[in-house]
């Protein structure tokens, strides 16, 4: 990947913009639903963090493996998952990717697109991601595994076990920390002895890279470089994308613990605007209109889909 502007790069940026703005509309549509209709699960909004998610995933190849984090839909959508099953999972509909076992966005998956899912215990994907990369190393399939996590999950011991082994074995894995400053009510600055999560990387003999998470293309470039390194057999990289938690931990969280300004609707350094700056207005408006209609259509289809039959309770316990 090169940082030089050129026709390919312009195309990449336009595609990143399209996906980011689509997810932005999805974020707003979901918020509207949660506020107006009520909601049985917990929606962990990722608004404001879409840029880094889409930017990073856009640097992956189709057959690379993805473990996403819990904040939003940007990761999976960027990996090629259609919106309807994602909304279906959120709304507990039979057309969700989990065929109705979802509810909340935590556990969508798409085996055909190598979206491998998410555990309910944060940080469990550190070790799983390293293991997936170990399988790629054994099979020599040339695939790289990308693992997203938050600054909160960076406290898990699983990080240590996975990072140590992945680095010793030079596994093709890239870790991407979305540092939005808050782990529910815990301030990152009060839970980390160092300024950056990436500061921990050198102890594991891997590069640690800090990047502006509001700059989707910067995250794309950092990820592309880390993926290339991993694919060359040189081992893992830890990327830390600095971002902001715009909303509460979940939609509806009143955030009484928060001692910095609660942002609400304001998105400083909005990745949508940054990506859109270089796109001609008429082109951008066209992309926006199409994205909005895609979201409306998919959300409507998910709402109209039936809830799962109770028989799914007993399905898929065993192969």
């Amino acid at each position: 990947m090169t940082n030089d502007p050129g026709p390919d790069r312009e195309q990449v940026q336009r595609e990143v913009y399209r996906k980011v703005v689509t997810i932005r509309f999805a974020e707003l549509r979901i918020r509207e639903h949660v506020e107006k209709e009520g909601f049985g699960g917990f929606w962990h909004p990722g608004i404001g963090q879409e840029g880094l998610q889409v930017g990073a995933v856009s640097a992956m190849q189709d057959d690379d493996y993805l473990y996403y984090a819990h904040r939003g839909l940007g990761y999976a959508f960027a990996k090629g998952m259609p919106l309807e099953p994602l909304f279906g999972d959120l709304l507990g509909r039979a057309n969700g990717s989990t065929r109705g076992k979802g509810g909340g966005t935590v556990h969508f998956a798409d085996a055909s697109r190598h979206v491998l899912g998410q555990g309910g215990t944060l940080g469990s994907n550190f070790v799983m991601g390293a293991g997936t990369a170990a399988a790629s190393q054994l099979l020599r399939d040339g695939r790289v595994t990308v693992v997203f996590f938050g600054d909160g999950a960076s406290g898990r011991g699983t990080w240590h076990e996975a990072a140590l082994q992945a680095s010793v074995w030079k596994l093709p894995v890239v870790w991407i920390c979305e540092n939005n400053g808050w782990a529910l009510s815990a301030r990152f600055t009060e839970q980390s002895p160092t300024e950056h999560v990436a500061d921990r990387a050198p102890a594991y003999g891997m590069p640690g890279v800090v990047v502006d998470g509001q700059d989707a293309m910067a995250v794309h470039d950092a990820t592309a470089e880390a993926i290339d390194r991993a694919r060359r057999g040189e081992g893992p990289t830890l990327i830390e994308a600095k971002t902001l938690r715009i909303r509460g931990h979940y939609e509806g969280d009143r955030q009484p613990y928060r001692d910095d300004p609660v942002l609400g609707d304001e998105i400083p350094n909005d990745p949508v605007h940054r990506l859109g700056e270089s796109i001609p207005d008429d082109v951008r408006r066209g992309i926006d209109a199409e994205a909005r209609s895609q979201v409306e259509q998919a959300f409507g289809a998910a709402l109209a889909a039936p809830r799962a039959d109770r028989s799914v309770i007993f399905e898929d316990v065993w192969a």
């Binding site: 997936t132 170990a134 399939d141 240590h160 140590l164």
Partner: peptide, 17 residues
Amino acid sequence: NETFIVGGAAGAALAGT
């Protein structure tokens, strides 16, 4: 690193081993 031994196995199983 038991969390890696078992969790890594889980991840490796998802990738066809």
